[in-house]
Simulated scan of single mutants.
Amino acid sequence: MATPPLPMRWRELALASQGLGPRKRFGKGLAGTLAALEHLGYVQIDTLSVVERAHHHVLWSRVPGYCLPHLNQLSSAGKIFEYWFHAAAYLPMRDYRFALPRMLSFRRGESPYFQSVDKTLMAEILARVRGEGVLKTRDLKESSKGKGLWWDHGPGRRALDKLFMQGDVMIRERNGMEKLYVLPEQLLPAGVNQQEPNTEEMAAYLLDNAMRAHGVFSLGQLLHLRTGKPLRNALRELLQARLEQGAVQKLDDPALPETYAVVGGHGATRRSQAGAEVRLLSPFDNGVIHRERLLQMFNFEYRLESYVPATQRKYGYFCLPILWQGHFVGRIDCKADRAAARLHVHSLHLEPDWAPDALFQQRLQDAISELARFCGCTAVQ
Rank of each mutant, 00 (worst) to 15 (best):
F26A: 08
F26E: 07
F26Q: 12
F26K: 12
F26T: 05
K28G: 09
K28D: 12
K28E: 12
G29H: 14
G29S: 09
L30A: 10
L30G: 01
G32D: 11
G32F: 00
G32E: 08
G32V: 09
T33Y: 12
L34S: 06
L34G: 02
A35S: 10
A35G: 00
A35R: 06
A35H: 01
A35I: 01
A36I: 03
A36K: 04
L37W: 01
E38G: 07
E38F: 01
E38C: 13
H39Y: 08
H39K: 04
L40K: 02
L40C: 01
G41Q: 02
G41T: 03
Y42G: 00
Y42Q: 03
Y42R: 12
Y42D: 03
Y42W: 09
V43G: 02
V43F: 01
V43P: 13
I45P: 00
I45E: 01
D46Q: 05
T47Y: 13
T47S: 13
T47P: 13
T47M: 06
L48V: 15
L48N: 02
S49F: 01
S49K: 04
S49V: 05
S49D: 15
V51W: 04
V51Q: 04
V51H: 01
E52A: 14
E52R: 12
E52P: 08
R53K: 11
R53T: 06
R53P: 13
A54L: 09
A54P: 07
H55Q: 15
H56I: 00
H56N: 15
H57N: 06
H57S: 08
H57R: 06
V58M: 12
V58F: 01
V58G: 08
V58Y: 08
L59Q: 06
W60H: 11
S61C: 14
S61V: 10
S61R: 06
R62A: 12
R62Y: 00
R62K: 15
V63M: 07
V63Q: 10
P64Y: 09
P64I: 11
P64M: 10
P64L: 11
Y66F: 15
Y66V: 09
Y66L: 07
Y66N: 13
C67H: 15
C67I: 07
C67S: 14
L68N: 13
P69Q: 09
P69T: 10
P69V: 11
P69E: 12
H70S: 12
L71S: 08
Q73W: 11
Q73N: 05
Q73I: 11
Q73L: 15
S75K: 00
S76M: 13
A77E: 09
A77D: 06
G78S: 02
G78C: 05
G78R: 03
G78V: 06
I80S: 04
I80T: 13
I80A: 03
I80Q: 02
F81N: 03
